[in-house]
């Protein structure tokens, strides 16, 4: 239970101090031709994000960029504690929303922000630049001889009928650690009762819990997992293009799919708003591009044709704060733990 309380403390900053130590996963400086420096705190891997940084620097070579990667919870906590960053990029849209709602974001208006659809921005404070679905990645070998499920009901049935095949080979987010995993889980629980039944079934099969999509996909490709549930579609698509991804495929579940918006905001403590705004414009133009370019992150739209995605992305609004409430979080995590940790 202790780690749950710890997470609550980090997420809402309700406890006093001592928790703001930012655990930096990656950091890289891109020198510019002038003294101007733009500090970006982001959840996106450097490998995925570097192309956009380089593109920005071809437009604005004068601005140096200090790019820091951390987990979504750490990103939130750092900004909450007033750490000095200009642009905050995160896949946890609920936490980004909370930062803006609590007055920790600066408004920004430009042609690019005005071009965004209304669902992709909130109060000129939070701006979405990608929409990314949660997908399920499976190991083709482990599913050999089975009919591939197309809905969650069928997935539950397949898992139930083949416990020996899937025991210990199901990976999903640890919602206590991963902000994105928590967001996906809560939104899924809200939209379908299949989530809890699936969790029950997974819980009986000794599921492996992960912090991040990348590791889950790695383990599927190396055969340690048969199925990785709720991984980021953009990461999965990127990995599937690689030659060593022969044994993997994305399982198309047609009943519904959660679509997350990757968002950016300018921190209220920023003193380099102009540079942050310029970078934001580049991000948004990239997100609004019509053709599928070379960049790894998916665009903001162009997925409207897909039936499962037609519910639209998770809505950027105050409802996101509901599951951030410590009481709700505690209740949800308790339910999730009792479902997932039946054998522990």
């Amino acid at each position: 239970m202790r780690h749950v309380m710890f997470a609550i403390g980090v997420w809402l900053g309700l406890t006093a101090s001592g928790l703001s130590a930012l655990e930096i996963e990656e950091r890289k400086r891109y020198p510019g031709t002038s003294d101007a420096i733009l500090r970006i705190l982001s959840t996106a891997d450097l490998a995925a994000f570097e192309p956009i940084i380089l593109r920005f620097q071809t437009e604005r070579p004068d601005i140096a960029i200090d790019y820091v990667v951390a987990s979504s919870a750490d990103v939130f906590a750092a900004i909450k504690d007033g750490e000095d960053f200009d642009l905050v990029i995160s896949s946890a849209m609920d936490l980004q929303f909370q930062l803006a709602n609590d007055g920790l974001a600066k408004p920004y208006i430009s042609d690019a922000t005005s071009a965004l659809p209304t669902w992709a921005r909130w109060r000129d404070l939070v701006f979405a630049f990608t929409s990314e679905p949660a997908v399920t990645v499976i190991s083709t070998a482990r599913f050999a001889g089975l009919r591939l499920p197309t809905t969650r009901q069928e997935l539950i049935a397949v898992l139930r009928e083949n416990p020996e095949r899937f025991a210990g080979a199901i990976g999903t987010y640890d919602v206590r650690v991963s902000g994105l995993g928590y967001l996906f889980a809560t939104q899924e629980a809200r939209s379908s009762d299949a989530f809890w039944r699936l969790s029950e079934v997974m819980g009986r099969l000794n599921p492996q819990l992960y912090c991040c999509s990348g590791q889950m996909i790695d383990d599927v490709s190396q055969g340690r997992l048969a199925i990785a549930y709720n991984v980021l579609g953009s990461y999965a698509a990127q990995r599937l293009e690689a030659p060593e991804a022969q044994g993997m495929q994305i399982l198309e579940l047609e009943d519904y799919a959660n679509v997350m918006l990757r968002t950016a905001l300018i921190a209220s403590t920023s003193d380099a708003e102009a540079a942050a705004g310029a970078f934001l414009d580049v991000l948004l133009r990239e997100g609004l591009r019509e053709d599928r370019g070379q960049w790894v992150l998916p665009p903001l739209r162009s997925q409207a044709d897909d039936d499962a995605l037609s519910f639209g992305p998770i809505r950027l609004g105050p409802a996101l704060m509901v599951y951030l409430d410590p009481l709700n979080r505690r209740a949800f995590v308790e339910s999730w733990e009792s479902a997932m940790e039946q054998q522990n």
């Binding site: 809505r315 609004g317 105050p318 409802a319 996101l320 509901v322 409430d325 009481l327 709700n328 209740a331």
Partner: peptide, 11 residues
């Protein structure tokens, strides 16, 4: 348990 609707109606 905060009801989802309580906040979604505000948005």
């Amino acid at each position: 348990e905060l009801p989802y609707a309580a906040f979604s109606m505000l948005g």
